[in-house]
Design a protein around this nucleic acid. Structure first.
Lengths: 253, 253
DNA sequence: TGAATAGTGTCTATAAGACAATATCCC
DNA sequence: GGGATATTGTCTTATAGACACTATTCA
């Protein structure tokens, strides 16, 4: 029990809490890091910022920051994302907590990894609005299906060095996305509405990094009830225009 | 590309780290809590200890403890489990991190939830060896399939009050187990070897809380290659004895 | 009209579930 | 032999994939 605080005894809980010394023990810092992902031109992309400070100065990092003592983890993730990217995605989800002792050379930092999904127009707009050493990098997944492991990032075909364990964090995010797409065939928040079934299929193929059967995909996604047809069709295409869809706002059943 | 320093900073990373003050910010405590689960008489069970100290004195809690600054999260989970239960399961896996601001009335405590699976003989032996206010409680899941949410625990049919957010943590553990069993039809470490296909099916039904198709289950599990027949058969049963199996030790491919 | 992609109908292969028939133990 | 459960084989049904065919737009 090396690290367990020795608790003062008191007869009732109120007195106990009044006498509790929250500063008695050395404790780690807790941070959140967010993998903000989208799909651009059939490829997964993510938002990165170049580090201006030590440690890992000059490397590329996920949007991240320390958790305030009076703020929940989810709130910290949303705050950090808003501060560093200006984007407020509808879906921000906790992934995994990285706690290797030496993952940050400054001091012990435990990082709660999150991922967030956004359509590519909002992602690129966010990056353009902050020209200051941020980029939307291509995600290169060096493993198939659900294997897992660190991923790599590139800009214009040139590899970028990631800071800390952010390659592992992005790998976990991609793995989670693939799991989710396998279960529920929906391109969670990666598409701007309205979209065609082909757009949705392209997103799935980009995330899964493999071809999906068109007929089966259409059947599944239409049968799922997750999409509603708008009645409108594409225009400005030089072929038969496709039906446009939106995600169904499902009432809480 | 090089950014302009806005504040004085050391030129090299070594000097920066030497001057870093790890105590500059108020920070949360970090704990691990482990849902140690097994199956007894067709029902999920978990190991609980009655709290002797405030807060939540008298309520039942998962084995848990604070993370040492020089120990990884996984190491903390294994250590806590060994200290509080004496059990060293082969599979201990991180689940989710609970970070509500008020989840612990003492101070801000962020808890990294783990789950561990063990066969019921080892679990009950561990509980008997520590008669001191520990128990193996029945897990009652008030939701179906993958719905999720807090679960309840009972001893001899009487409900037990859980401390902190441990009902939610156990709920997350059950949800994860159901996901895993759906993918890979294997009773991860919940059975002592050797076992029959019926034993394995009973474990699945206990975890999933629904009947599974016997024929289909046999086909899937035998085709998976995860089991090897021992060549032995049950004895001491008053019917045709079943083949005994072990889990295949798969070579790392 | 032709190029291109959207959308439909149907066949086949595979997996899951139902169920009957047989096997093997203890009593 | 009778009771009980294991194990095997076959049939039916649901689903995914393959593929041919029709539809609709613009150039």
């Amino acid at each position: 029990m090396a690290s367990k605080p020795e608790t003062p005894r008191a007869d009732d809980e109120g007195a106990f809490l009044a006498g509790y010394d929250a500063r008695a023990f050395e404790r780690p810092s807790v941070a959140v890091d967010v993998s903000l992902l989208s799909v651009r031109d059939g490829r997964l992309v993510t938002f990165l910022a170049r580090r201006k400070d030590h440690p890992h100065r000059g490397r590329w990092a996920l949007p991240g920051g320390f958790v305030n003592v009076r703020e929940s983890l989810n709130a910290a993730a949303s705050r950090v994302l808003a501060e560093k990217t200006g984007v407020r995605p509808t879906h921000v989800e906790q992934l995994f907590t990285f706690g290797a002792v030496d993952r940050d050379p400054r001091t012990r930092v435990i990082s709660v990894a999150y991922y967030a999904l956004v359509d590519v127009a909002r992602l690129t707009a966010a990056a353009i609005a902050r020209a200051d050493d941020v980029c939307v990098a291509d995600v290169v997944v060096p493993w198939a299906e659900q294997t897992g492991g660190p991923i790599e990032v590139e800009r214009d075909g040139a590899p970028l060095r990631l800071a800390f364990d952010h390659a592992e964090q992005l790998g976990t995010a991609v793995q989670r996305m693939r799991e989710k797409l396998g279960h529920a065939p929906i391109g969670h928040q990666l598409l701007a509405e309205p979209f065609t079934l082909r757009d949705l299929q392209d997103v799935h193929e980009a995330v899964l990094d493999r071809a999906v059967n068109k007929d089966s995909f259409r059947r599944k996604v239409l049968a799922s009830g997750d999409l509603v047809a708008t009645g409108d069709k594409q225009n400005d295409v030089d072929h038969r225009p496709a039906e446009l869809y939106r995600f169904a706002r499902r009432s809480a059943v």
